[in-house]
Amino acid sequence: MTDVNSQGSALIRVEHLTKKFGDTLVLDDISEHINEGEKVVIIGPSGSGKSTFLRCLNLLEIPTSGKIWFNDQEITSQNADINKIRCQMGMVFQHFNLFPNKTVRRNITLAPVRTGRMTQEEADQKAMELLQRVGLQDKADDYPASLSGGQKQRIAIVRAMAMNPRVLLFDEPTSALDPEMVGEVLEVMRELAEDGMTMAIVTHEMGFAREVGSRVLFINEGKVQEEGTPEEIFSHPKNPRLQDFLSKVL
């Protein structure tokens, strides 16, 4: 699916991104980019700003200053249509955030239908296709409360995929799962990666980061303190903070 020509063009471009909560500086002048087809893994200690960085990309957090482009459109500008942009950026949350008042099928089809991208029939068909891919087609008419954590997260991924997004943002998708369910979710993500999906993933699963990531960012104290290939980051870390962090988590 990834076409070689688009590899170089930045799908998301971030320039001088700064985010403060009150007086606390959380993101400090970050400039980054995510290319089409890239799998960018974001690591760093707790409270370093990883989630905030990810959430700025789809404007769940409004940057204090700086600019973000998606697909050559400045999404931080006043007149950007944020709902339209978010249709093309899926997000998967640590706590799944499925809608408990809707069946699995309605969880998946609600957004495509309510944003006018698909008819109910088209959305239903898409939902069943995707559910089949993650092996949960028999759960279509169940409510989220009856599912296991791993099943919920696979449904949440399907829900994001149903919008046909250009990029998927994952914020610690396996951190809230029982250990025996981590594998099934990572497996789905691995398949998405192989299909060429552009992904930005905040995770503590270093094995997965190493295997799937095309680039790793180490965020600490609101800055990207080191970045590189998984090999560079995990085998030859240069920054002492990164060395220290890795010695704790590996």
């Binding site: 339209k84 978010r86 249709c87 899926g90 949350f93 706590h95 955030n97 809608f99």
Partner: peptide
Amino acid sequence: IDPGQMEAGRSLGMSYPVVMKEI
């Protein structure tokens, strides 16, 4: 209601009134 519900709805491109009404 968990704020994550509104965030999930908005992250899928739905507007504030739609998420309010549906979720």
